[in-house]
Write a protein that binds this DNA or RNA. Structure first.
Lengths: 215, 215
DNA sequence: GTCTATAATCTGATAGAC
DNA sequence: GTCTATCAGATTATAGAC
């Protein structure tokens, strides 16, 4: 079977030369993507230009096409990476098996979401809004996104936010707080301070028993 | 005093020729802005190109510069118009002086906001998000925006949503519902159906007396 | 007030030498 | 794998004839 230049995953131990070459290639790709993130954080998500990107990694823009098929391919990689980050951030275990009540866990989960989103507005835009003209995620990347959001739904169900309408309401309130924080008080905490209150309000609406039991 | 080509508002009755000319000019400007709205609704807010705009109004792109100083000037006009629309929509009186309870009025106000926003996603984007690269509203237009939002704050206070934190919470929840509706179910009603529930939940949090009194 | 012509600059992407 | 050279196109905006 011929090597697949697309995946670059497997590397048989019988070809150490190719291993090193492949490893180098993967490192360079990662370097390019990292530079792309830096660039969009400065210029905005739509401000990613191949020339500038090349300059930043110390190549001519044209050379990037040896690593990525197109600009869309770079966006796609960023999109997938962002959802993988989202997933591992949201699923992080609490330290050394501490036990919390469902209410506390719901609060921690919501803060984790809020902080993840507001800590990188451009990433948030890529994850949850549709503002890049012409960008369409590949099937593979889209599947990663769906998995990540499914996992979130399960986490919410575990702490009392169960059912489509409850999840929709939670999503609306949390993204609403996030959006306002990013748009109207970037770097501040004007809406961050409202997260606890909003989550308790939500739980009171969708899981009143939980709140009663805690009183 | 010389005529001010910037405002085009006053027209003395002693110069009917100029009146007609000015009126025509104003109509053409309005026509261009209308075409610009059509265009961004099809191509997205960032997809406004002078060429296409010219084509749509039956001129060469270059001729538009006789009416607007720059592309930014066109965006600025759209921005101001959108806030004026927002204002008049939100301040519309109820029919023939009907009286409603504060809870009912809060619900009507919230639905009006939600419907205004979701009925024109591009306008919503221009009003409440920052996604046009390099666009900065003029001082005059910015003042219109501030006035409109102040008016909204006053309306909210009248129906029991008073105080900075309460207003911030209302704003976050309503824009959150709006965003989700636009992004994830355009043209549908998946989040519209949650507006009543969300508003009652909010009022229970920020004006519990109001809800108690209604029971 | 509209046009032609054009400036000046940016864009993503390809061909082919080395 | 990186380069030079270049394409083919877009963009906003200005100058000047009519």
């Amino acid at each position: 079977m011929a090597r697949d230049p697309g995946t670059e995953a497997s590397a048989s131990s019988s070809t150490p030369q190719l291993d090193r070459r492949t490893a180098r290639r993967i490192r360079t790709k990662a370097e390019i993507v990292e530079a792309a993130w830096d660039l969009v954080r400065e210029e905005g998500l739509a401000g990613l230009a191949m020339r500038d990107l090349g300059k930043r990694v110390g190549m001519k823009a044209q050379s990037i096409y040896s690593y990525f098929e197109s600009k869309n391919d770079i966006y796609d990689t960023m999109f997938r990476d962002a959802y993988l980050d989202f997933n591992s951030t949201m699923e992080a275990e609490n330290e050394d098996g501490e036990r919390f009540s469902d209410v506390d866990t719901a609060l921690r989960l919501s803060h984790r979401f809020f902080d993840f989103c507001t800590s990188d507005p451009v990433r948030y835009q890529l994850l949850f809004q549709r503002t890049i003209p012409d960008f369409v995620p590949s099937e593979e990347s889209y599947a990663v996104a769906v998995d990540a959001l499914d996992a979130l739904t399960n986490q919410l169900a575990d702490v009392g936010v169960a059912g489509d309408e409850s999840v929709d309401l939670w999503t609306a309130v949390l993204t609403g707080l996030t959006d306002q924080q990013i748009s109207n008080d970037p770097g501040g905490d004007r809406w961050k301070r409202l997260v606890d209150r909003a989550v308790l309000m939500l739980l009171g609406e969708v899981a009143p028993d939980l709140i009663e039991a805690t009183k």
